[in-house]
Design a protein around this nucleic acid. Structure first.
Length: 264
DNA sequence: ACCCAGGATGGTG
DNA sequence: CACCATCATGGG
């Protein structure tokens, strides 16, 4: 168990930010499942307690929650004249851009298309229960490996409620499991290269590719444009969003706007 | 019964 | 290039 103090960290905001789908609010704490790991986290004000060993915190969770980045500095860089962006960031100053598993992001964000967040969570959970390994003593299931998912049939996936995305998931899982699509080299690529490669996957378009880049590869310049952001742009940035001002990390600001619009 | 949800694909003009 | 029907499913 390890407790830290951090201004720009709010586990509740992160849990409902729509970038992760396996973070659950329990009675007095949050339960987080990532890849094949599970942790309980509680927070009182700026004191955050990670219920794990110091070793696991240092080796995994610290990086997972992007605790080495200064988010205060990012928020302070917002144009003081941009009232909307200031309000958006102010509504969720505790968001972090998580360092999630690329494979997990590919699958979950293919599922996310034309879908709502509660339902995405439900489907991801069902997928883990059916194809993931049990995490010992946790009553939780790891995210399935590509090899495990590759053994599924389209009918199996349809039964889980995946709908028309079932065929996307199957082909992508199989292409990755057999090594036809190389995940390891993807992790070495810069944003533009990674994005281009991701677009070759069946079921991955521009928006999903950017979500994978942002949440799975930590290319914080990636800026996913979904239905919410389109509405925000139409309403608050009719003359265009000032991307040039936030070059290299606009994706973080995207999360503030997404959150603000989602919870309005 | 109608509309929407962190869109992508395949076809057409 | 731009547009557009279609793709399953559940929740409002």
């Amino acid at each position: 168990m390890i407790t830290i103090r951090e201004k720009n960290f709010n586990i509740r905001e992160i849990a409902i930010s729509g970038q992760c789908f396996r973070m659950k609010q329990m009675d007095g704490y949050f339960e987080v499942v990532a890849k094949d790991k599970c942790i309980k986290i509680s927070q009182k004000g700026q004191e955050i307690t990670f219920h794990c060993t110091k070793k696991d915190f240092e080796n995994f969770w610290k990086h997972y929650f992007d605790l080495e980045t200064n988010y205060g500095k990012i928020i302070r860089s917002i144009d003081p004249k941009d009232d909307y962006l200031k309000a958006a960031a102010s509504s969720c100053k505790g968001i972090r851009i998580l360092n999630q598993d690329p494979w997990e992001m590919i699958i979950t964000f293919i599922i996310s298309q034309q879908n709502n967040i509660p339902r995405i969570k439900k489907i991801v959970e069902a997928l883990c229960e059916k194809y993931g390994e049990e995490i010992q003593g946790r009553n939780q299931y790891a995210f399935p490996t590509s090899q495990a998912l590759a053994t599924a049939t389209e009918k199996d996936l349809l039964a889980l409620g995946l709908g028309y995305r079932a065929k996307y998931i199957l082909k992508t899982a199989r292409d990755i499991a057999c090594g036809d699509f190389d995940l390891l080299s993807l992790c070495e690529d810069d944003y533009e290269t990674a994005r281009k490669k991701l677009l070759t996957l069946y079921g991955v378009g521009p928006k999903v590719a950017d979500c994978i880049c942002l949440f799975g590869l930590h290319h914080v310049e990636a800026f996913p444009i979904d239905t919410h952001i389109k509405q925000v742009f139409a309403k608050h940035y009719p003359k265009g969003f000032p991307f040039e001002r936030y070059e290299g990390y606009a994706g973080i600001l995207q999360q503030y706007m997404f959150y603000y619009d989602l919870n309005k």
